[in-house]
């Protein structure tokens, strides 16, 4: 019997999902990975979901380490959900679970069937949406340095000193003021919301959205993503509720992704909301229609 993909945290970690055919059992493609009862060589027939770097593996043989108790046979064509293991001359992954590669299952395995990278990005956006405290569509009206920090810096510089710890990893917080078109998740109904984001391009912060005036889209906002201790270490002031932050690269999304985000937000909310019917949703639908007609 073929075990279904394991639910929960392990399956959620599977970022490389592919349809593959088992070429050899008790075999590997890497010298550094000894063959065992749990290693098989699979030909990747089709990449269903993957980060950009691994999206080109169709047609290549890779090593799959089966989970304890997982069984496969030579010649089977399966959908594998996997996490990384060894990246060497060849690739070795760890199976989180597999299922038969029937046509409906293959079709249903990806958000964007012909775009494994887009499928992964969509999944990550939906994960962020389910964790967000507030989701709004709108437009960045302005970007500014938080007032308290600006005053403290000016005072310190005038005194010939500095008001903050100097670290390469300092976030250098900025605030974006967002004019809200519509709220898609969260109890607050405001015409404007202020989101704090790191303007730093340091390795710690560069992936966080860098908002600019005029930017329009879906904002996935979170309360208190960093501890007060860490906030104190990194900046002049700690965050005060109900200030929001956007730290994950998926915390800003184009309007086109709103329907998927809405679904994820609804699923995560205590009382699911009906599909968005407001301005932003209409705008997103209108854009999709224009695209389907070849317009922009």
């Amino acid at each position: 019997m073929t075990p279904a993909p394991r639910p929960g945290a392990l399956a959620a970690q599977a970022r490389f999902v592919f349809q593959g055919t088992i070429k050899n059992v008790r075999a590997t493609t890497l010298k550094s990975v000894p063959a065992s009862a749990r290693t098989v060589v699979a030909r990747v027939d089709r990449v269903i979901q993957a980060p950009e770097t691994l999206s080109g593996y169709a047609g290549h043989d890779i090593t799959v380490e089966l989970a304890p108790g997982e069984r496969v046979r030579q010649g089977q064509t399966l959908i594998f959900q996997t996490t990384g293991w060894i990246f060497g001359d060849s690739l070795a992954v760890r199976s989180v679970g597999h299922e038969e590669a029937t046509t409906p299952k293959v079709a249903g395995a990806a958000v964007h069937p012909e775009d494994p990278v887009g499928s992964l990005q969509a999944r990550e956006a939906m994960t962020q949406a389910s964790q967000a405290d507030l989701i709004v569509t709108g437009r960045v009206r302005s970007v500014r340095v938080p007032n308290a920090e600006a005053q403290a810096r000016a005072k310190a510089m005038a005194a010939g000193s500095t008001a903050e710890r100097i670290s390469e990893h300092a976030p250098v917080w900025h605030e974006a003021v967002i004019d809200v078109d519509e709220t898609h998740k969260g109890a607050e109904r405001r015409k404007q919301v202020v989101v704090r984001f790191p303007s730093s391009t340091d390795v710690r912060w560069y992936q966080a959205p860098k908002f600019q005036a005029g930017q329009e889209g879906v904002f996935l906002l979170h309360k208190q993503q960093i501890s007060p201790t860490t906030a104190r270490a990194a900046a002049l002031t700690t965050l005060k509720a109900p200030e929001y932050t956007a730290l994950h690269p998926s915390d800003f999304q184009p309007l086109e992704r709103l329907p998927q985000i809405q679904l994820a937000a609804d699923a995560s909310a205590a009382e699911p909301k009906p599909p968005a019917t407001g301005t932003a949703a209409r705008r997103a639908r209108s854009r999709r229609r224009r695209r389907s007609k070849g317009g922009r």
């Binding site: 959620a12 970690q13 970022r15 060894i86 060497g88 001359d89 990550e124 994960t127 390795v203 992936q207």
Partner: peptide, 17 residues
């Protein structure tokens, strides 16, 4: 002479960094 990546350092699931 040859190198491979082996993930052994504590991090978090989904970390790009």
């Amino acid at each position: 002479n040859t190198w491979r990546l082996n993930s052994v350092v504590p991090s978090r699931a989904g970390s790009a960094l």
